[in-house]
Nucleic acid binder design. Structure first.
Length: 565
DNA sequence: GCCGTTTTCGGCCCGACTGTTTTCAGTCG
């Protein structure tokens, strides 16, 4: 799959052209093409060979020719031409807050700035300040931007942002005058990583609401505080913004601050075509406001049904809403159990009884204990004897439990030759077999997974790509081929909900669904405190357009066992 | 460069803020 590398090429091309002062519309066209290619689940090379490039939205005559050139010759002359005399390092500087394309181009043209070093130098010696339109404040602002750029802690995983947002909402929701409050932004969309945490509130006494927010005990720094917005740092590393609006604009503001940007642009374009204007204050016909208090009304005014936040990425959700074809997305209440949990038998920290009690408290009906198998020594993998002991303990526990059931499972290693770490004789006695790769990430991963899927006792392939969010790329695996085999063998693919995995991700889950593959959410918990990650998994599933019926977890325990026979 | 229930040409999202300016350009979200 060359999708990502071509997407990157167009994104870089857009940056380079922007720096050269090319028409913003052309720049945006390239940028959009980049985004669409990044999101594409089909293989660009296949579409190319079938002559279907122009069927991709945002790809027309010019861009399809450039893709063709790149795929046939290995280079794109437009890119080479546009980036001549411009290095990667210069383009990277567009990421500095307060330094936009115009200013950067000026610094490049007049002062020969090529990278961060140069930029710091021309600030230090006052050369930048002497350029037209530059003043003391702007320089100061750029210096701040450089500071942030260098720290660049980047985005935090969703699993870290969610508890912070919940805690803040909990802490201020009973504030006097507050009528509505909700997380917004990428967190509300359940994107896998989150930049700043955005929270939106509505009500009277707005100043007081902001004040109670900036005075929360875990706030370490107040960046801004007014009667419509407060901005703070939590624990010195996480920025949280609270905006407070009037109730009459809450829906429009929530829609606006939830994004995504491309989803919003699409809606505004639609509004314009209908002679309307959409902003964070509402939908207007001339000077008359026709919607704004509720999100449903904003979408309604555009002739759309309400679109769940997780879908708002301009991946076809607006068209689906227009034709009444939005999926009935899976909800947390549809999820009856967690299908991948570790106990203290292997490297977990909680006993099976503790896990069962905690899961029951979360409203679940069952959990599957899937400890590591013996090959995974580093993770305290268990052998056949320990597995038998565990089975006995689970039987005894199930005798006592009411309205809850513990399933006997295993996370069995797929070995280097594609065989499994336990014999079929052992596996067939279990309620659920989850198979995964923990070694040889570059050795025939696709073939090994396929072999595992053809074993009739294997029910689920765990974390199928092996990626760790912002830490590890993942296995060398042909995920398309894995999905295809899963469809043939009826094996489920896991949406591993552990916060730094989320694997399958949203796009792969969507692809798998389209190919008729069932999925299984498992938290991969190693203790009771991470069982809540199930909601992260539901987030991924919803972002992948999944409905309850696409997930094994929506089956009750008896139906699940029948399926796994 | 893309695209079409205003269009095959002429548009292309919206508003706030800031700083450097006498009316607006640049940047951001």
């Amino acid at each position: 799959m060359k999708n990502r590398q071509i997407a990157e090429l167009f994104e870089r091309l857009a940056d380079a052209l922007e720096l050269k002062g090319e028409s913003v519309f052309r720049v945006n066209a390239y940028r959009k093409a980049g985004r669409v290619l990044r999101d594409l689940t089909s293989d660009i090379e296949v579409l190319h060979s079938e002559g279907k490039l122009k069927e991709i939205p945002g790809i027309g005559e010019g861009i399809s020719k450039k893709i063709d050139e790149y795929l046939t010759t290995g280079k794109m002359s437009k890119y080479v031409e546009a980036t001549e005399g411009i290095g990667e390092e210069l383009l990277d500087l567009l990421g500095v807050q307060g330094l936009g394309p115009k200013t950067l181009a000026l610094a490049h043209d007049k002062l020969g700035v090529m990278n961060l070093e140069d930029l710091k130098k021309v600030i230090g010696d006052g050369a930048l300040a002497r350029l037209p339109g530059m003043g003391e404040k702007r320089i100061e602002n750029i210096v701040k931007g450089i500071d942030l750029f260098e720290k660049a802690k980047g985005r935090m995983p969703l699993g870290k942002a969610v508890p912070i947002a919940r805690e803040i909402v909990e802490a201020i929701k009973s504030e006097k005058g507050l009528k509505e409050i909700s997380p917004a932004g990428s967190l509300r969309r359940m994107a896998e990583t989150v930049g700043d945490i955005d929270i939106l509130a509505a009500g009277a006494r707005r100043l007081g609401i902001v004040k109670s927010f900036t005075q929360l005990p875990f706030v370490t720094d107040v960046l801004a505080s007014g009667d419509t917005k407060g901005s703070v740092m939590i624990d010195g590393e996480t920025q949280v913004d609270l905006r407070v609006v009037k109730r009459a604009a809450y829906g429009a503001a929530l829609q606006y601050f939830t994004g995504s940007k491309s989803h919003n642009v699409k809606l505004r374009t639609m509004a314009r075509a209908k002679g309307l204007r959409l902003s964070e204050y509402g939908i207007f016909k001339g000077a008359k406001k026709i919607a704004g208090a509720k999100e449903e009304d904003v979408y309604g005014a555009l002739g759309l049904s309400w679109i769940p936040p997780e879908l708002r990425e301009d991946r076809g959700e607006v068209e689906a809403a227009q034709s009444g074809k939005l999926p009935a997305l899976v909800e947390e209440v549809d999820i009856l159990g967690d299908l991948h949990v570790h106990s203290s038998y292997s490297d977990g920290s909680s006993s099976i009884a503790e896990l069962a009690a905690a899961a029951k408290k979360l409203g679940l009906k069952y959990i599957a204990i899937c400890d590591h198998s013996k090959y995974a020594k580093y993770a305290g993998g268990i052998d056949e004897k320990a597995l038998a002991r565990q089975a006995k303990e689970i039987d005894e526990l199930n005798e006592r439990l009411r309205g809850f059931r513990v399933l006997k499972g295993i996370e069995v290693d797929i070995l280097r030759d594609g065989s499994l770490d336990f014999t079929d004789h052992i596996l067939e006695k279990l309620d659920i077999v989850v198979a995964s790769i923990h070694s040889g990430f570059r050795q025939n991963v696709t073939q090994r997974m396929m072999r595992a899927m053809r074993n009739p006792h294997v029910d689920v392939i765990s974390h199928p790509t092996g990626r760790l969010i912002s830490r590890r790329e993942g296995y060398e695996v042909d995920i398309q081929a894995v999905i295809k085999t899963a469809a043939e063998t009826g094996t489920a693919l896991e949406i591993n909900a552990y916060y730094d995995r989320l694997d399958l991700n949203d796009l792969n889950a969507k692809k798998a669904k389209e190919m008729g593959v069932k999925m299984s959410i498992g938290t991969d918990s190693h203790g009771v405190e991470t069982l809540w990650f199930l909601s992260l998994g539901v987030g991924v599933a919803r972002r992948g357009w999944l409905e309850g019926k696409d997930l094994l977890n929506s089956l009750d325990a008896d139906d699940l066992l029948r399926r796994n026979k």
